[in-house]
């Protein structure tokens, strides 16, 4: 009873990169158990804790969705092809959409003047801090910076600045540009 199983790209890390493997079983359930036996970890990506097929994965027997056959009890025969087809979202990796640039003025009082807090910030956070303008007069410091990084990281940095006693104000785009 050899059944061909087509493995989608996201699950190929369990099959050492193979896009097609052979498995055995009289029903889909048996086949998936056999698959897990030989490719440990793959089962949990296809089925949930209760053993049901996950809602964002579809399984096709030849070209038919098993949900419209007998689901896990769908009988299989020699020479059948099972295709596992997960939802994919891509047009392109969305990495860039998480990255932001934010221009802010940092103003701070005398007590921070001699503390290298921008140096400290750049070591603590994965954010590029680009200084556009800086002036220190009397007991007040003012630095205009552009913060570039993941949105969440930039926000954490701003919170950290505020905790340090640095006032953070957004710069209107037109001021620096």
């Amino acid at each position: 009873m050899a059944i061909t199983v087509r493995i989608p790209t996201p699950l190929r890390k369990y099959t050492s990169g193979k896009d097609e493997v052979s498995a055995e079983g009289k029903t889909l359930k048996e086949l998936l158990q056999d698959l897990e036996k030989n490719y440990s970890g793959i089962g949990a990506r296809i089925m949930d804790e209760k053993g049901a097929i996950r809602r964002f994965v579809n399984i096709y027997l030849n070209d038919e969705d098993v949900r419209f056959k007998s689901n896990l009890e769908t009988p299989l025969k020699d020479g059948d092809t099972i295709s596992i087809i997960p939802a994919i979202a891509g047009g392109a990796p969305a990495k860039k959409t998480n990255m932001i640039k934010k221009k802010v003025y940092l103003t701070y009082q005398k007590r921070l003047l001699n503390k290298p807090f921008i140096w400290e910030a750049s070591r603590k956070f994965d954010v590029v801090i680009n200084i556009g303008t800086a002036s220190v007069s009397g007991d007040l410091g003012l630095v205009g910076v552009e913060l570039e990084g993941k949105a969440s990281e930039v926000e954490s940095l701003i919170t950290w600045f505020k905790k340090k006693g640095v006032k953070v104000e957004p710069i209107e785009q037109t001021v620096l540009e």
């Binding site: 996201p10 990506r45 996950r54 809602r55 964002f56 579809n58 997960p86 939802a87 979202a89 891509g90 392109a92 990796p93 969305a94 990495k95």
Partner: peptide, 19 residues
């Protein structure tokens, strides 16, 4: 086909994806 989007953690990381 897929009643709900997959929960975070069940789809491959975008960073490692490439195209």
């Amino acid at each position: 086909l897929y009643p709900e989007p997959p929960p975070p953690g069940m789809v491959p990381s975008c960073q490692e994806a490439g195209v």
